[in-house]
Amino acid sequence: MVTSIIRRLIQALFVIVAMTIIVFIGVNVIGNPVDILINPDANQAERALVIAHYGLDQPLWKQYLLFLQGLLHGDFGNSFVYGRPALGLILERLPATLELAITALVIALLFGLPLGLYAGLYPNRISSKLIMSGSILGFSLPTFWVGLMLIMVFSVELGWLPTNGRGPTRELLGAQWSFLTGDGIRHLLLPAFNLALFKTSLILRLTRAGVQEVLPQDYVKFARAKGLRERRIISVHVLKNLMIPVVTIIGLEFGSLIAFSVVTESIFAWPGMGKLIIDSINLLDRPVIVAYLMMMVLLFVVLNFIIDICYTLLDPRVRLEGKA
């Protein structure tokens, strides 16, 4: 198992190095930030000073080496727009996005797993068919439209929940969190539910498919033949074996919740990383864009590594294959 972990760490390192090249080159070909940062009426000397100040006059390979040097020290450079360290700007917005993503994932698990398990165990019931039909809606409805409808119903018509913002926060572990206050939770519910809708449908359908695949297996039939209670069969034999694909989806979808919550954050004016990256793209703020993308690369690499470790804990065959 140790050898397998070391091998995966080396693979992850190669992935990160490759992604630094792709991200750096990709960001540098989307446009010239000088056209936005400098007044159009500025003369050539003023333009040259600004270009030299930001290091944009250096060859691309030298800019990349400087970028790698800063990356090793956790320095992505200063934002062109805010004049502050790009990584600091990202980390300021990270708690808001992280809070939203975790809440959405919890909602998806609380609804998706039991509903998918029920639909898989009793596929012929009318309630199960209604659940599966509802999951199709969760896949089909656009996120922005669902968000607008949630605001119209629960905020405008009923007046139960606020329309936007994060609400009051409290400090915990050096960061501000809205789930620690009652009004903050009210601000969190709508965007979290909007973000969780697609993930709930995905987990629900995956769980149902896993149950349908596991139930006909011989070890389940043998457990029933031994007279084990149905609850134990489901909790030990069924759930444990269907959790491997579910764990994969949960890990990857958690990363996507953080990386791609831009639409939800924009609709509900949630002050997370999504809104910051949209503004940075519009203003060609390269340091912030690069810092955000590299954080997302690191996030997905770490999540995949954790998923691999979970495989070895859930399925002994993975450990045996690693030894072989």
Rank of each mutant, 00 (worst) to 15 (best):
T3F: 12
I5C: 06
R7C: 04
L9I: 15
L13T: 01
F14T: 12
V15K: 03
A18E: 02
M19T: 06
I22G: 04
F24R: 01
V27R: 04
V29W: 04
V34K: 08
V34A: 02
L37M: 05
N39T: 11
P40R: 10
P40D: 05
D41G: 12
Q44G: 07
A45C: 12
A48E: 15
V50F: 09
I51S: 14
A52R: 15
G55C: 08
Q58W: 06
Q58N: 15
P59Y: 13
Q63E: 07
Y64S: 03
L65A: 05
Q69H: 15
G70Y: 13
H73G: 01
F76M: 00
G77V: 00
V81Q: 07
I90K: 03
E92N: 14
L100Q: 06
L100M: 14
A101W: 12
V106M: 12
V106K: 01
A108Y: 01
L109S: 07
L110H: 02
A119R: 02
Y122P: 07
P123H: 14
N124L: 09
R125E: 09
S128N: 01
K129A: 10
K129F: 00
K129M: 06
I131G: 03
I136V: 02
L137Y: 00
L137W: 04
F139E: 03
S140P: 00
T143I: 10
I151P: 04
S155T: 14
S155G: 13
V156W: 13
L158W: 15
G159T: 08
G159V: 08
L161G: 08
P168D: 09
Q176F: 03
Q176L: 08
W177Q: 10
L180P: 03
G182M: 09
H187G: 08
L188A: 10
L188W: 10
L190S: 10
L197Y: 05
T200S: 09
R205F: 02
L206Y: 07
T207H: 00
L215H: 00
L215N: 02
D218E: 11
Y219I: 01
K221M: 01
R224E: 14
K226D: 10
R232P: 12
R232Y: 14
I233A: 10
S235C: 11
N241R: 04
N241C: 05
L242H: 03
P245F: 09
F254R: 06
G255R: 01
L257K: 05
A259S: 13
F260M: 12
F260R: 13
F260K: 03
S261M: 08
V263C: 02
V263D: 01
I267W: 03
A269I: 00
P271S: 04
I278D: 04
L283W: 07
L284F: 07
L284E: 04
R286A: 06
P287E: 08
V290W: 06
M296I: 12
M296P: 07
L299P: 02
V302W: 11
N304S: 09
N304V: 06
F305L: 15
Y311G: 04
L314I: 11
D315Q: 11
D315Y: 08
R317L: 07
V318R: 10
G322K: 01
A324V: 10
